[in-house]
Write a protein that binds this DNA or RNA. Structure first.
Length: 802
RNA sequence: GCCGGCGUGGUGGAAUUGGUAGACACGCAGGACUUAAAAUCCUGUAGCUUAAAAGCUGUGCCGGUUCAAUUCCGGCCGCCGGUACCA
């Protein structure tokens, strides 16, 4: 009888639900295993096959761990606040709340259709009041601890989304979401002081099992660099110009200074600047440019009437304003050393400025000489002849002794812009008291509920749509009782997603963010798989928030301050032909179609079989037919089960398969795990009858990948118990070992013949004689003299002759 | 530009403390079953020479180390990802 995947899959999904098979126990004696995927944001388009790759992978691992005796928490929720949901709502002109509810239902239907072993009892959405209550609570704690502050900042402004973006959300100079142009805009924003955690975010990486590229990307993004801050005096002024440099050894080569267009000292020096109107014109032109345009060609303008004094040689040097220097790094001003910095060199060439080499070795006529390791000091007064390293130490000491400079550390990482001028997000629980600045909403009044609103579209003036709700905005100051106004910006979608995995451990707690007992049992997450695109976003943010919650005691000490013990990443799935799946191209593969045609198990197995898990791969419809046949052949084999003896050969292959499938799943080499099962199946198909116990083990190995078919076969075999908690097969090294082995015989590096030997046959003279007498070998050796005979046990036999 | 990763049949890919390259699957070709088709099953399938036996070539390109290199080393080319005036 043909395998009826439709009926079978429905049957077992209902069974698992009825039996509550996937409930995670909060206080089990078993070893706990917390496996996590990045929860989806439910767009209107539904899931596509690319989303299922990481979910299926962690489901396979979770199922295998349950059978290996662990208490598994594999939770699911939805990241519902934020732009994707809001944009979809705008496009369809449906209130976000309504659209989101509908989308959640569709996502849940699709996830259930694939038979994932989620603990659905812990489900929540980030836009649930019960949940964002605690998202707001975290914000208030950050504020109370001085880690949330409002400031006027030059921020990245997306012209198309009409919102401010964090640096992490600007990708390649354009908006991460919509690809629109980014300009600088001065705006009052809430910021989180993630920079205070920069060192801990780097150091923590040493203690956790993240893929190396993830560690490296995060470290690079945080961008710690050690250097010196140096003060330059300004002529006819008490103002000082502070710069950051990693190369204090080049101080004698400083021939001019450069300010970022936004540098505040320009304003303070207005009285002395003779070409002020030209400077102002340059600055406003620079502001209107996007970051990409700024990078195109170097331009600048000299500040007439003011100069700086080089502290080491007291020389007067000109000051420029130029947009190749950025306000957002270091001090927003640089000491330019054109002889030893390529950018400064190009600028000096363009504006015909002095280029003074201070380190021997390069040819500064052609380009800047940037080698830091070798060379000696020149043109550096009494320090001539010093090595670069020695002088660096010397001058740093001199600067700090004379209070001109000091050692310091700089980071590329900036404080995290945390407000969005949108509607569909967590209201920031702050009110502005006319008398006394910003105050937090009292914790007993949480959550600050997002009001329903008719016109939820973003406004062109850069205000949140909430700014139109006078009734909601006007409130009382929680401290003095006087009139106050609510904050109208909302949190970015990261607000809810940076702590959701904590809430899974105690999702219904009304009194606390999390019960410390439950947190202690489950945290940290044992294995978190997600996309590489979140390395500098969600993954960095959530580590920061977790460390903060650890610091204020919400996360118990025993858990440590790193949220994820292990992080892996999956490759993307592209549409057929290797292009990105997109609705506009009409090439999105919908799992509904695949499941209708081939069933959930076939889709699951194909997702795992299609290629290496960590690599990008194109979808191939024909590939699904391969695994579909595989599953049907397994079903057909169930008729051959009987009480027969298992052959040595079958037993060996079984044990080899147990070993390979087990280690492959653990290493996420799912494609080779599947192919091993195919090899085993191909072998079993050749047998007259198949032993019941061997078959039972085969079903167990298959079950994490194709759980519905396996459950059905398990029952067919006469079992009444739940396969999900049956013990994972163990392999016996001796039984897995081949008895005979075929070795290649090479003559002068070329394979000429083979020989079958007992495993572990040691090299011997007799064997050598036997091999040399083989006909093919004799023929190859005709007229040659044997120089060397090499036999590496179980590997190769190699003969050298000439 | 800089920093990672990768490059193997018609296709997805397998094989690494150096040891028989191409497992497994797709596709294709031939055959069986069928009035026919689909489905299923069997056989073959890196390229070249060849009727066959066999031989030669072959893991992006060039060179090196070694009895032996997809694997190690040096140089180059291409693709993908990250990052980008970071002082």
């Amino acid at each position: 009888m043909k395998y009826n995947f439709k009926a079978t899959e429905k049957k077992w999904q209902q069974y698992w639900q009825r039996e509550q098979t996937w409930l995670a126990l909060d206080n089990s004696k078993k070893k706990k295993f917390y496996s996590l995927i990045e929860f989806p944001y439910p767009s209107g388009d539904g899931l596509h096959v690319g989303h299922l790759r990481p979910i299926t992978a962690m489901d396979v691992i979770s199922r295998q761990r349950r059978m290996a005796g662990e208490n598994v928490l594999y939770p699911i929720g939805m990241d519902t606040f934020g732009l994707p949901a809001e944009n979809y709502a705008i496009k369809t002109n449906t209130p976000p709340k309504v659209a989101t509810k509908r989308n959640i239902a569709n996502f849940n239907r699709q996830l259930q259709m694939l038979g994932y072993s989620f603990d659905w009892s812990r489900f929540f959405s980030t836009s649930d009041e019960d949940y964002y209550h605690w998202t707001q609570w975290i914000f208030i704690q950050l504020w109370k601890n001085g880690l949330a502050y409002k400031a006027k900042e030059n921020i990245n402004w997306c012209l198309s989304c009409q919102i401010g973006l964090a640096n992490e959300e600007v990708v390649g100079g354009v908006c991460e979401r919509c690809g629109g142009a980014i300009v600088k805009k001065e705006k009052e924003q809430w910021l989180l002081r993630i920079s205070k955690y920069a060192d801990r975010l780097i150091d923590g990486l040493k203690r956790i099992d993240f893929l190396e590229p993830i560690k490296k990307q995060q470290t690079d993004w945080i961008g710690r660099s050690e250097g010196v801050e140096v003060d330059f005096a300004i002529t006819n002024s008490d103002q000082k110009l502070k710069v950051f440099t990693t190369r204090p050894d080049t101080l004698f080569g400083v021939t001019f200074m450069v300010l970022a267009p936004e540098h505040p000292i320009i304003h303070r020096l207005e009285g002395q600047i003779k070409n002020l109107s030209a400077i102002k014109k340059y600055i406003s032109a620079a502001r209107g440019k996007s970051d990409i345009d700024r990078g195109k060609e170097k331009s600048g303008l000299k500040l007439e009437g003011v100069s700086a004094i080089n502290p080491v040689n007291k020389k007067e040097i000109p000051i420029f304003v130029a947009d190749y220097v950025m306000m957002s790094y270091g001090t927003g001003a640089i000491m330019a050393v054109p002889a030893h910095d390529q950018r400064d060199w190009e600028f000096a060439k363009k504006y015909k400025l002095n280029i003074v080499p201070v380190i021997s070795g390069g040819d500064i006529k052609k380009e800047a000489y940037t080698d830091t390791e070798s060379g000696q000091m020149i043109n550096s007064d009494k320090y001539n002849g010093f090595s670069v390293k020695k002088f660096q130490k010397e001058i740093t000491g001199w600067l700090s002794k004379n209070k001109i400079g000091k050692k310091t550390v700089n980071y590329k990482l900036h404080d995290w812009i945390f407000s969005r001028q949108r509607y569909w997000g967590e209201p920031i629980p702050m009110v502005y008291c006319e008398k006394d600045n910003w105050q937090a909403v009292p914790e007993k009044d949480l959550p600050v509920v997002l009001p329903d609103i008719k016109d939820f579209k973003p406004t062109a003036d850069g205000q949140s749509p909430l700014a139109k709700l006078d009734k909601w905005i006007n409130t009382k100051c929680p401290v003095c009782g006087g009139p106050a106004r609510r904050e109208t910006d909302v949190m970015p979608n990261w607000g809810g997603s940076n702590w959701y995995f904590i809430r899974y451990t105690d999702p219904r707690n009304k009194k606390q963010l999390v019960d410390p007992k439950k947190a202690k049992y489950w945290l940290p997450v044992d294995w978190y798989n997600g996309g590489m695109e979140h390395t500098n976003l969600h993954l960095l943010y959530s580590r920061f928030i977790y460390k903060f919650l650890f610091d204020i005691g919400v996360i118990p000490k025993e858990c440590g301050d790193e949220p994820y013990a292990k992080r892996t990443a999956h490759g993307l799935i592209l549409a057929e032909g290797g292009v990105k799946m997109s609705k506009s191209k009409g090439n999105v593969i919908n799992p509904d179609d695949i499941v209708a045609k081939y069933g959930a198990d076939a889709l699951r197995v194909y997702e795992m079989f299609m290629g290496p898990f960590d690599q990008t791969i194109a979808w191939d419809d024909q590939g699904v037919t391969g695994v579909f046949r595989f599953l049907n052949r397994i079903w057909a084999l169930a008729d051959k089960i009987g009480a027969v003896k298992t052959s040595k050969e079958s037993e060996r292959l079984l044990h080899q398969s147990i070993k390979k499938v087990s280690t492959d799943i653990e290493q996420m080499h799912f494609n080779t795990a599947v192919s091993q099962l195919m090899i085993l199946l191909n072998h079993l198909e050749k047998q007259e009858k198949i032993n019941k116990d061997l078959w039972a083990d085969f079903i167990k190995l298959l079950s994490p990948l194709a759980p519905h078919l396996s459950a059905e076969l398990w029952q067919k075999l006469g079992h009444k118990n739940n396969l999900a908690y049956e013990s994972w097969p163990k392999y016996d090294v001796r039984l897995a070992q081949e008895e005979k082995i075929i070795l290649g015989i090479q003559v002068n590096g070329k394979l000429r013949d083979t020989i079958e030997l007992d495993y572990d046959t040691a090299p011997s003279k007799e064997l050598e004689k036997e091999i040399l007498s083989q006909e093919k070998i004799q023929r190859c050796l005709q007229g040659l003299k044997i120089r060397k005979f090499i036999h590496v046990k179980n590997k190769i036999i190699s003969i050298v002759a000439n």
